[in-house]
Computed example of a mutant assay.
Amino acid sequence: MSKQTLIALIDIMQGLSKEELKILNEKTVEEVETIYINVYQEQNDEQIEIAY
């Protein structure tokens, strides 16, 4: 995925501020991918907790 797509997905999942968006745009694709994976995992963990 492109860096902008990953940033958009992170924004959808967490609701980023303008400052957070600016910081993410300055990071490398690999760094953004890592952040996306962490955010996705947090969302998944929250859904599992709600299910129980």
Rank of each mutant, 00 (worst) to 15 (best):
I35F: 05
Q4C: 04
L24G: 02
I10E: 09
T5K: 15
V32D: 02
D11C: 11
S2Q: 04
E19Y: 06
E30G: 01
Q14Y: 02
N38E: 07
E26I: 11
T34R: 08
E19G: 11
T5H: 15
L9H: 08
L16T: 03
K27P: 00
E49F: 07
E42D: 11
E42S: 09
E26Y: 13
K22L: 12
A51N: 11
E42C: 03
A8N: 15
E49G: 03
Y52F: 12
N38Q: 13
D11Y: 03
Q41H: 08
Q41M: 12
N25Y: 04
Y40W: 07
N38T: 09
L16I: 07
Q41W: 04
Q47G: 07
Y52Q: 12
G15P: 04
D45L: 14
T5D: 15
I23G: 01
D11T: 00
I35H: 10
Y52I: 12
L9C: 13
A8Q: 14
G15K: 06
E49R: 13
Q43R: 14
I10N: 11
I7R: 09
T28W: 12
I48W: 10
L9K: 15
S2K: 14
K3N: 01
E49P: 02
L24H: 07
T5W: 12
A51M: 09
E19N: 10
N44C: 11
S17T: 11
T34E: 08
E49A: 10
S2V: 02
E49S: 08
T28G: 01
T5I: 14
K27H: 11
E26G: 09
I10S: 03
A51L: 15
Y40F: 13
E20G: 07
E19A: 14
I10R: 02
I12H: 09
E30M: 03
I7A: 05
I37L: 05
V32F: 00
E31I: 02
M1D: 15
I23D: 08
Y52R: 13
I10W: 05
I7M: 05
Q41P: 03
I10P: 01
D45P: 03
A8F: 13
Q4K: 14
Y40E: 10
N25A: 06
Q14R: 15
L16R: 10
I12Y: 04
L21K: 01
G15C: 01
A51E: 05
M13D: 03
Q41K: 05
D11A: 12
L21H: 08
G15E: 04
E46P: 01
L6S: 00
T34A: 11
T34K: 01
L6A: 03
N25L: 12
L6Q: 04
I10K: 02
Q43V: 10
K27Y: 05
T34G: 02
N44Y: 10
E30H: 08
M13W: 14
Q14D: 04
Q43C: 09
L24Q: 06
I50W: 06
K27M: 09
E46Q: 13
E42N: 06
L9P: 02
I48K: 06
L9F: 14
L21E: 05
Q43L: 09
I50T: 14
Y40H: 11
E31G: 01
E42A: 08
Q41T: 10
E33S: 02
E46I: 01
Q14G: 08
S17R: 00
Q41Y: 02
